[in-house]
Amino acid sequence: MGVLQFIKDCQEKVFSGNGISSEDAKKLLNVPDGHLTDLARCANEITRDFNGDKVDVEQLNNIKKNACSEDCSFCGQSAFFDTGIETYQLPTPEEVISRAQKAKEEGAESYCLVAAWRGPSPKDFDKVCNIIKEINDKVGISVECSLGFLTMQQARKLKELKVKRYNHNLETAKSKFSEICTTHTYEDRLETLGIARDAGLELCTGGIIGLGETREQRLELALELARLCPEEVTINILVPVPGTPLELQTDLPKEEIIRIFSLIRFLLPESVIKISGGRETQMDDSGEELLQSGANGIITAGYLTMGGNEAKKDREMIEKIGLKA
């Protein structure tokens, strides 16, 4: 069987609802370079068939920055590394409401509250809950959260507050994880995802590519994501932060980025697949090609420790390629 026919046969398995096998996934990720455009095109057709032309646009609010107790080697917010990044504690509800309102006016469909800590203390969790209530009452935008490790009681409270989705990234493959973080385990992360799911929250999970992992480890991550079947997958492309252990990490070739986004679409045809940090600096088109290779979501207007495109520029980019913001 030729490579193009194999890709099309895998696409047909997805369309028929049967899905692809792990062996199919391995072969797809390793198609020859000359067939990468075929893989991307078929992934795009799956995206359009299952998700239409709409691009999910999200904005973040980093509500507590830096001094995190975890030693994730890519992260500029870890207390273990001297990165020179500004620190601050939880803002007032008024500050967050103002930014949430601006995000809504700029066309964001969801607003994610992110905090740099291992997990929220009871006092900080109460503050976050108050912020969520205020956003619900005064803005009316879909709220998502990324607050680290959760207890079941906390997860149920978030669900009660109508938080739609909980983000907790796996970061990388299980076989790579201990090289990236030593202060908690891969299993710790899976446990929090299980708690969020059991509490009735939708899941957002993914990771960072370009950490020095192999292609096989990216496949390992993709298959684990497929097993979890999250409503949203968020894939970051590493932007090396000075002062972290990965500050000299070599950029991942664009072709490798396209491969993994396309594969994840074959594995998760109905999920939002979101291009997160790094698209503006690691892709020469701010993500246009990825939005035509399996992705159907972006984070706009900046990330946790770095800026991003203005929301208006991203809307124009989406419309330019015939999609809807």
Results as ranks from 00 to 15, higher is better:
299 I>P: 06
217 Q>E: 15
203 L>I: 15
53 D>S: 14
182 T>M: 00
145 C>H: 02
48 R>I: 15
316 E>L: 15
105 E>I: 11
221 L>V: 12
90 L>R: 06
132 I>Y: 01
191 E>C: 12
253 P>C: 05
63 I>F: 11
151 T>D: 01
228 L>T: 09
113 L>C: 03
98 S>P: 00
192 T>W: 07
159 K>L: 07
9 D>G: 05
307 G>C: 03
55 V>M: 08
205 T>P: 15
252 L>M: 06
77 Q>C: 02
251 D>W: 04
249 Q>K: 09
288 E>H: 01
158 L>N: 04
26 K>Y: 08
105 E>H: 13
138 K>I: 01
196 A>F: 07
58 E>S: 14
41 R>T: 14
141 I>V: 13
41 R>E: 04
20 I>Q: 04
138 K>P: 11
258 I>W: 10
85 I>N: 07
293 S>N: 00
202 E>N: 08
207 G>Y: 08
131 I>F: 06
58 E>H: 11
66 N>A: 15
281 T>W: 01
245 P>V: 12
302 G>V: 03
227 R>P: 11
257 I>K: 09
248 L>F: 13
113 L>V: 00
323 L>K: 13
312 K>H: 05
78 S>K: 10
112 C>W: 00
73 S>C: 15
173 A>Q: 08
300 T>M: 06
278 G>L: 05
74 F>N: 11
205 T>H: 10
226 A>Y: 10
64 K>C: 01
74 F>L: 11
22 S>G: 12
23 E>K: 15
281 T>M: 07
278 G>N: 09
